[in-house]
Amino acid sequence: MTAAVESPTFQKDRPSLFSRIFDRWLIKLTILAIVIVWVIPTLGVLISSFRPGGVVNATGWWTVFTNLGSNEWTFENYDAVLNSEGFGNAFLNSLSITIPATVIPITIAAFAAYAFAWMEFPGRQWIFVTIVALLVIPLQMSLIPLLKLYVNFDLNGTFPAVWLAHTGFGLPLAIYLLRNYIGSLPSSMMESARIDGATHFEIFTKLVVPLSVPVLASFAIFQFLWVWNDLLVALVFLGGEPKVRVITLALRDLNGSRGEQWHLLTAGAFITMALPIAVFLGLQRYFVRGLTAGSVKG
């Protein structure tokens, strides 16, 4: 194969140096054009969020590039949104929702995945097949009955209501991913641990969990972004009370009440985006893996 590459036919058909350089530039320009189109929306929001309100609503944000010396930057918009518009509180609410709603399904799914992979019990096969089928159920199917259930048990509007709902909606994917990974660990390792007298619980905590860190991380990032960015579940089960309101809902409300105050809207939007973007940039590798494996979620 490598010899064939050097063959005369190949050399003859090679495009001229000029057209190759031209192609290179064309490729680079196309890439650059797409990147610019993709970045402009976020860039506009970022720049506007640091400009004084009067200026944002009077001139286009792109005018900052033509008078760079004007020095008209401010943190006031962030101050206003975080304090008087309640985004600070909403940010903390989102954290109190997101972290348990990420950790609880992982814990429950990890135990279940271990059982599906390494324990024998009646119904093991068909229960797992049911979980595979549940992967694509739209969560809209659960909203109405679950809301009625929550109202009956007086759970509606509480944090646990949302933790549990996200746990339920995230479990099929979590179990599916973790079971595939945990099931592929070498069986010889499990057996020798058993021979050494380890119980299932010890094997799980001391052997399986440490070895599964990559897959646990990918699911954690996936679920974290999903819950943080969720509007529907929080809207239905938690509601818009300022005390419990999450950050996506705060942004939605700001959009309703101050729809043309772009200095506030852009700052608010950027506050909601900051944490997921940071998580994403820091852990991109795991995120990509989770996305690839999780592309069947419903």
Binding site: V45, N229, L231, N255, M273, P276, I277, L291
Partner: peptide, 12 residues
Amino acid sequence: PMAISFVGASIV
């Protein structure tokens, strides 16, 4: 943009 919520993207 994959990391941005639908609400955030809508404002953008």
